[in-house]
Design a binder for these strands. Structure first.
Length: 600
RNA sequence: GCGCCCGUAGCUCAGUCGGAUAGAGCAUCGGAUUUCUAAUCCGGCGGUCGCAGGUUCGAUCCCUGCCGGGCGUGCCA
């Protein structure tokens, strides 16, 4: 079994650098907050107590205003009825340079920003690439992200994609937030699955076939081993012996075989990684920790938590609320998944000094990571606090009667990632032939859009949900899809090309002319919040949703707001808006690891 | 059995710290192109937020129980 196939939040870099230079969009909120706080104090509230209760949210119904405050808690603090207090508060917030109005509506206070101020602050910040729209200054936070981590003795199929694309997005999101990120591919190149593959190859292997198509051939071997082992249980015993021989450290047949299969697998895996645009800072698989496990075991022993049980060495975790002990050494003396993960934690601690270590691994391995963390806690290792499992759901295949079931690679219904990507790219090529036959670089664009459609689809929903793999849905490029967002970028790029004039600097624009772009601007303003939430909760889908929403707003806006034929002053203002929307969508897609072609 | 996760429109899903009239996409029906890409936009239809209690001024959200589905549960990863 491999890691792939499936949160939490601790520290976060709070709002970006101090307000030097141009006012950024966060300052609209900050300004309102300060006014509200001052008003609360005027109304007799304690400043520190009130500070926590001034919480601004975008109202669900946009008719209510740009931003709203539910005055329930503040009213309680004041000992007044919420509607009465809301009215008093609203009256105190008189209009100023950026606040257009404040109005009480029952227990709520609704605010509106001046349209020109809204446009100026949002668009200036985007144009100057200021955080949160641009990369934040380094915060000093260090995040290790253990992702993809396929068992390389198995084919790279659809199930492996989730950890890969979620982890990749998290790397990008945390870097954007100013963290130092170590993206780590903890390859499954050790242990029993690898020993089984080795055993299969030693019995039925054919080197020519292996070199010809390593991934497919190893899939054949994998299936064959499964069948043979059913008929002949001795095979598993042999595999165990071979693993022991491999782990003895002696230069023997097993070691040479391990080297051959590992090399071939790694080469084969490079294909999907390249197509997905995924890179790693460190490729330190399980085998990397071969010579680091004894030190780790010594540390566990020294901590006094290691016990002998039924011939194995374990750490009992009942006192941590976990009934199943954590096995660190089998009765035959060989090591386990946990042993290597423990060694990896110590290694990462010493090498990278991380604040967080995220394990982007399927939800079915929850117990494994709970045990890992519990062992570290029991050892009183402070690094325990950094260990966070980031689980995600399974990929299910659709059955003929419209239900969904787990992919079973043993049964052979596994779908290779390459097949899916190829299928998607082919479909995109078809759409291009219909809609944009004169496009240059058709192949490159088809690859970019086709692969992105699959990646986007995987990042669209909360990661904990199972992904329902449905060809029809996967190959539909309308509605909430990757191509929908990319298409928005392409349209915006097209406008900028057609106008063929430089985008004006923000101090040369009359932002009052963008009053009709309020929905776009308010959506843009959500970006920082979205990225922060995505980082805190290890949830790239927050960024995906943002991208869909902004693309939707700009698509709607473009319908009846022309740039090309517009009055010069209007055109100038709209150019800034269009350019900002293009930048922001491109950034959002980039955080997801998705390219944004200028034409499609 | 025990532990954990999921359950919101016909389907796939959002719903942020408990807050205003629960939102999208797909499907379906009806519209929009003399101008920047119709992979688009606008509108209609569609809801017992699994069920029952509880807490609260207020629950899709928190608590308890139940139902349905999934995952896990000592020498695999």
């Amino acid at each position: 079994m491999n890691r792939p196939l499936s949160c939490s939040a601790r520290t976060r870099p709070c709002h970006r650098p101090p307000p030097t230079g141009p006012i950024t969009v966060t300052d609209l909120h900050r300004h309102l907050r300060e006014r509200l706080l001052a008003a609360s104090v005027d109304l007799g509230l304690d400043a520190t107590a009130a500070a926590d209760l001034v919480r601004l949210d975008a109202p669900k119904n946009k008719d209510h205003g740009d931003i709203a405050l539910g005055a329930f808690q503040l009213a309680k603090l004041a000992g007044k009825a919420p509607p009465a207090f809301a009215a008093e508060l609203a009256a105190k917030i008189t209009p100023d340079a950026v606040i257009e109005s404040s109005a009480a509506a029952g227990p709520f206070v609704n605010f509106r920003f001046r349209r020109a101020a809204l446009a100026r602050e949002v668009l200036s910040a985007i144009q100057s690439d200021a955080a949160p729209y641009g990369k934040a200054t380094p915060t000093g936070e260090v995040v290790c992200i253990d992702f993809s981590s396929p068992n390389i003795a198995k084919p790279f199929h659809i199930g492996h994609m989730r950890s890969t694309v979620i982890g990749n997005a998290l790397c990008r999101i945390h870097r954007h937030q100013g963290a130092t990120v170590h993206g780590i591919n903890h390859l499954g190149d050790w242990g029993m699955p690898f020993a089984k593959m080795m055993t299969a190859y030693m019995h039925f292997g054919d080197e020519a076939k292996l070199h010809e198509s390593p991934m497919r051939y190893m899939f054949e071997l994998y299936k064959r081993y499964g069948k043979e082992a059913e008929a002949n249980p001795g095979l598993d015993d042999e595999a165990a012996k071979r693993f022991k021989a491999l782990e003895s450290g002696v230069d023997n047949d097993e070691r040479r075989m391990w080297q051959l299969l590992r090399d071939e697998s790694l080469k084969a895996f490079q294909g999907p990684y390249t197509r997905l645009g995924v890179t790693f800072d460190h490729v330190t698989g399980e085998s990397f920790f071969e010579d680091k496990m004894e030190a780790a075991m010594a540390r566990v022993t020294a901590a006094g938590v290691l016990e002998e049980s039924e011939g194995a060495e374990v750490v009992k975790l009942e006192d941590k609320g976990i009934k199943v002990p954590c096995l660190l050494r089998k009765s035959d003396g060989t090591t386990l998944y946990h042993t290597r993960d423990l060694a990896a934690v110590f290694y990462r601690e010493q090498q990278y000094h991380p604040n967080r270590i995220l394990y982007v691994v399927g939800a079915e391995q929850k117990l494994h990571f709970a045990q890992l963390k519990a062992v570290l806690e029991k050892m009183n290792e402070p690094i325990a606090a950094a260990v966070e499992h980031v689980p995600f759901g399974l990929v299910l295949s659709k059955t003929e009667d419209g239900k969904y079931e787990k992919f079973a690679s043993r049964a052979g219904n596994a779908v290779f990632l390459d097949e899916i990507l190829d299928e998607s790219v082919a479909k995109v090529r078809q759409v291009i032939a219909e809609k944009n036959p004169d496009l240059d670089d058709k192949d490159q664009v088809a690859e970019q859009v086709g692969v992105s459609a699959i990646v986007f689809n995987d990042l669209k929903n909360s990661r904990i949900k199972d992904v329902k793999f449905d060809w029809d849905a996967m190959l539909a490029f309308e509605g909430e899809t990757g191509p929908y967002v990319q298409y928005a970028v392409a349209r915006l790029s097209s406008i900028l090309r057609k106008v063929d004039a430089p985008v004006p600097a923000t101090d040369q624009v009359d932002f009052a002319l963008l009053a009709d772009a309020e929905r776009v601007l308010l959506q843009m303003m959500e970006f920082g919040n979205a990225v922060r939430r995505a980082a805190e909760q290890s949830e790239p889908s927050v960024v995906t949703s943002f991208a869909i929403a902004l693309a939707g707003e700009i698509h709607s806006y473009l319908v009846d707001h022309y740039v090309v034929g517009a009055e010069p002053a209007v055109q100038q203002a709209r150019l800034v808006l269009v350019d900002a929307a293009r930048r922001l969508l491109t950034t959002a897609l980039d955080l997801l690891g998705i390219p944004a072609p200028e034409r499609m």
